[in-house]
Write a protein that binds this DNA or RNA. Structure first.
Lengths: 169, 169
DNA sequence: ATTTTATGTCAGTCTTGTTGACTTTCCAAG
DNA sequence: CTTGGAAAGTCAACAAGACTGACATAAAAT
């Protein structure tokens, strides 16, 4: 019982008491709140919500992505996504183009207005992330990413590492 | 641009390109989904939601906590919390006791049934956390926690480090 | 005695998720 | 060529969980 978690390097065993894990769970909860706080404030000004932010983010990340692809990334129903997408299209933030190869598909792009809002949102989020990373230092950042990736569902890891360019411009 | 952020802990400089930060933002998004996936499944069986989980968690963490304290931790309105709390009390998972010193206050405790569900939920969440921690290794875990804490709002850091026992048993 | 605090409740709104049913388009296999 | 089924959109209805605002009650504080 009076054992130690060994040295920091190598494969030293981990003493993960329930209390350690509970603290980590709470840290995750509180940190996520911080993570979304800044974008939430901006979104409110425009009358949008987090769902809109997510759509903007992933369309920006992969221009020309299809609705179906977006669905599998976001993990919501098409009806739910469609409502958000319709608003964004109506308001001129997102453009939906019929696919050339498969004309059932709609390929999604951000307009200049859409890009501007996405920028504003991600600038705020990046600023907080950058500040946290600077405070924590490079080693901590590496560890942070490693743990986050290990926490994802395998399916989401796939999306995370998938840099497919669905170009159809 | 070629600057160094070397005032940290005497470590290598951080190259935080927008692309790095974007990846980190996505990792946070996907990881949080994994983080909540298991409890969500369990909650669904019982007809509860995340809001109930949060209440159970923090009442379990700080038995005898008051409604007001819970409100400031969870950051929701009292109407919203009250609905959740009422359900949990009606279903016999939470007990609400009038304060002895200040009889306006209600002190909240988990019943045995409440403790059982809290256990089931946090066991699932801890299992995933433990697995991720084991995969990532001790160094990564330390970094993970450091970054999360730096990402919180100062107000939430306060709650995170506050181990006040509101004992009124 | 009055004010403030802690809590609870009622009513109504909003966002974002859900299911189910139906239509249109259109690729591809029979 | 016909038909089956996939991709996408639409409509309707609904629920959880957040919100605001108004009001009630009890008790502590002034």
């Amino acid at each position: 019982m009076g054992d130690r978690g060994g040295s920091n390097s190598g494969e030293a065993l981990l003493f993960l008491t329930d209390e350690h894990l509970r603290r980590a769970i709470e840290a995750m909860f509180f940190a996520y709140r911080g993570f979304t706080a800044d974008p939430d404030r901006i979104l409110e000004e425009y009358g949008y919500g987090r769902a809109h932010h997510r759509a903007l983010h992933f369309i920006d990340r992969t221009p020309g992505t299809t609705v179906n692809n977006l669905l599998s990334i976001l993990g919501v129903t098409k009806q739910s996504l469609n409502r958000v997408l319709r608003t964004l299209i109506e308001n001129g933030l997102v453009e939906s183009r019929v696919g050339r190869k498969d004309r059932r598909e709609r390929h999604l792009y951000l307009t200049d207005t859409g890009k501007a809002l996405e920028r504003e949102l991600s600038d705020a989020q990046r600023a907080r992330m950058r500040s946290a990373f600077r405070q924590a230092g490079p080693e901590a950042v590496a560890g942070f990413r490693t743990v986050l990736e290990a926490m994802m569902d395998p399916n989401m890891q796939r999306h995370f590492n998938n840099n497919t360019q669905t170009e159809e411009r």
